[in-house]
């Protein structure tokens, strides 16, 4: 395993466990961007690319266990539907020196160690299943506390707020609450006004209107014809008309 780098990234092999025979190459580099993010402090954050899908926080802590304390691990996945499980990971160390140490590493520990194994495979699925079987008492408790909290938060909302200058905010509630601000409602109102203006129009009053409506009729026929033609053209391309 020779040390390699590409475009400022350092390449290190990462294996799942001691028994693994193949490895993924992960790319690491010090995190540096213009916009600072509190969660990813500059100088302490390691930016890693191509981390295999099954790597979790425990796994990465295992991998960097030789370096020093890790404050947090942040995963950035691609979208759910994309079918790409490889991740970008930000590892935030407690001190800068750990980061520097990490960048000098020539070898990473396996993701899964004997003391801190990653649960995977059938074991994980069994655990998931067993967890889905819940105790109804506990569940009841959980629901009750949540609902209690929810009711509480509802109640806490002040009925009327009088601000500094003595204005009272009157939106929802009150005697005449006004229209709620929903898109659907706004659309409905729009439609209504449009309809009423349309009703006032006289349709077959002027000769040009009659002419136009005739023209429109022909236009529709033509359009249908064009559409049909297009369809037949497509069918022709698909050699549909060869009956045998």
């Amino acid at each position: 395993m020779t040390e390699e780098s590409v475009q400022g990234f350092k390449i290190l092999p990462l294996v799942f466990s001691q028994q693994s025979t193949s490895w993924h190459e992960i790319l690491l580099k010090e995190h540096s961007v213009r916009h600072q993010d509190e969660l990813k402090p500059l100088g302490q954050t390691l930016f890693i690319l191509n981390v295999p899908p099954y790597a979790c926080e425990t796994g990465l802590r295992n991998a960097f266990s030789n370096v020093g304390n890790i404050k947090r691990v942040i995963f950035e996945n691609a979208e759910d539907q994309s079918g790409d499980g490889f991740k970008r990971v930000f590892v935030v160390f407690n001190k800068r020196e750990y980061l520097l140490k990490a960048l000098k590493l020539t070898q990473l520990n396996p993701l899964s160690s004997d003391t801190q194994p990653i649960k995977i495979g059938v074991e994980k699925w069994i655990e998931d299943y067993n967890r889905s079987i819940c105790d109804s008492e506990q569940l009841q408790q959980e629901v009750n506390t949540y609902m209690a909290q929810y009711d509480e938060s509802k109640k806490q909302k002040p009925e009327e707020v009088v601000d500094d200058e003595g204005w009272t905010v009157v939106t929802k509630g009150g005697r005449r609450p006004g229209i709620s601000r929903k898109e659907s409602l706004a659309n409905k109102l729009n439609e209504k006004t449009q309809k009423s203006t349309k009703k006032k129009e006289l349709k077959n009053f002027y000769t040009f209107q009659i002419r136009e409506s005739k023209m429109k009729n022909i236009a529709v026929l033509r359009k249908n014809f064009e559409e049909a033609k297009k369809k037949v053209e497509l069918m022709k391309q698909a050699r549909k008309f060869k009956p045998y």
Binding site: H24, E25, D84
Partner: peptide, 22 residues
Amino acid sequence: INGGKVIDGRIIAFNEDAVIED
């Protein structure tokens, strides 16, 4: 780079063996 490996420091090839082991 996802799922790949770097060859000669400039080309990415699919890391087939590693993925199969995954």
